[in-house]
Write a protein that binds this DNA or RNA. Structure first.
Lengths: 254, 254
DNA sequence: TATAGGGTATGACCTAAGGTAAGAGTCAAG
DNA sequence: CTTGACTCTTACCTTAGGTCATACCCTATA
């Protein structure tokens, strides 16, 4: 029966000495014997056990649970594996969402077409703007449109930029929270969003104002089907926000 | 300009007060001002910044990196996002591998048909065993087969079980390491595996012995196409092991 | 004016799985 | 007998906070 020192065993198994010390202290892998000087010596059985430990560790099982797997005879390994698999699937799903979010953010960054605040119509094709204004005036009335433009200009470019940046942030954050419109954090974002939009539109949201904002936004995003009016990354997102907002208004007294 | 206390801001943003303390200490989010009593007060700009922080945090960016993103004007956000995406893709790939490993392990557990060590042929259809033995004897000689059987029996059921468990472990571990046959840890496993097989076959691996082991294994695994001779979870795994073993023998002097 | 309740600040200890280092003891070879 | 390699224990560091403990601050009410 040959014995392995910590170093030999660590090299054999490809782990650090520290790891063996740790496993010893947490009763996951004890040496078969200690020399008079306190040196740890491991036998074949321990090497065997270490192999098992490393297998489960590689699967991202926490060491405590590995301890149970190996020591508790009543432990249901198959069930543990099934559950672990479910947990891994959830992690994978979350990562997929994150990757999607990043991709959308990159798209938004690449063709950053948010309203640039300083000059309302700068950068837009002149004839399209004119067409849009005319259409909007005949739809919601000339005064409404002028009021919107005044409100925007009155804010000053700094505050305007700040608010739009924050709207941007909130939309980004909502992207990460997509799912349950009634979720607490979602509702917090919606409340904040509502407040900003209210201020953007000069104190109250009259019919027509928001729509005109949207129409302007659509002009900017005309050739990017993936980025909707107010910077929303997708139709799914728009639906989500409108659901969350509906719930918000239903449960809030202004 | 309204100011938020820690609690108000924490409720507004859906984080804990502790989190705000932490972000303060690590210079990620400082209050805009402190009262005479040392109370933290945050303004709109800070709320804005917190929204950004939470967005990147949700994407699993470490807080230190968020600090850079927000404070370093030279920071290349797009590149950071691209890199982060790559990292997330790698994590996802790893999780996929883990899920695959678990599934294979579950298959192996469900129809646990590894050699049961104590009684060599127990549990096998008698006529198949006879047929197999006869074929093997005519192929590699009667003496060889008898020698194999003697070797196995001579080991005693305990050691036999131990070694097979360890072989099992090693195969499991190799499953998690699949990829580069020359990788250090792979080669450690292969060395260990070689040692055990050598002992299992009575000191030397003569042509025929291993093949007979395999044939026996195939009997056990006959109706499970996914589990090959010696418990390998797949053909891919078999190829991987044989490559790694070839490299091992080429670089080792026995 | 005193007190009760709630908000706040700081500091300390805890999590998982070790990395890294310090200081001291052990072992085998020259 | 010394040197170098090995080993021991102890302790501090990492992430992103959670959870006390203790003490201070503020305000409303009796």
């Amino acid at each position: 029966m040959n014995k392995y020192s910590v170093k030999k065993l660590s090299q054999l198994a490809g782990v650090s000495v520290r790891t063996l010390h740790l496993y010893d202290k947490m009763d996951l892998l004890k040496p078969s014997v200690r020399t008079g000087a306190g040196y740890r010596l491991y036998g074949e059985k321990e090497l065997l056990r270490l192999q098992q430990i490393l297998f489960y560790r590689e699967l991202d099982f926490p060491l405590k649970e590995i301890c149970d797997i190996l020591d508790d005879p009543a432990f249901d390994l198959m069930q543990a594996l099934e559950e672990h698999k479910v947990a891994l699937l959830a992690r994978k799903e979350r990562i997929n969402t994150l990757i999607g979010t990043i991709e959308k953010t990159l798209v938004t960054l690449k063709n950053n077409t948010m309203l640039q605040a300083a000059d309302l119509y700068e950068g837009l094709p002149v004839e399209k703007v004119a067409e849009c204004r005319t259409a909007a005036m005949s739809k919601w009335g000339k005064d409404m449109i002028l009021e919107v433009e005044d409100t925007l200009r009155a804010l000053g470019s700094q505050e305007m930029a700040a608010m739009q940046t924050e709207l941007n942030n909130i939309t980004n954050r909502l992207t990460t929270l997509i799912g349950d419109p009634q979720h607490e954090k979602v509702q917090q974002c919606i409340a904040r969003r509502y407040e900003i939009i209210t201020r953007l539109t000069g104190g109250k949201i009259a019919p027509g104002k928001l729509e005109y904002f949207r129409t302007l936004g659509e002009l900017y995003a005309a050739d990017k089907p993936d980025v909707t009016a107010d910077g929303l990354p997708s139709r799914q997102m728009a639906v989500f926000i409108s659901e969350a907002t509906a719930y918000y208004h239903k449960n809030t007294r202004h």
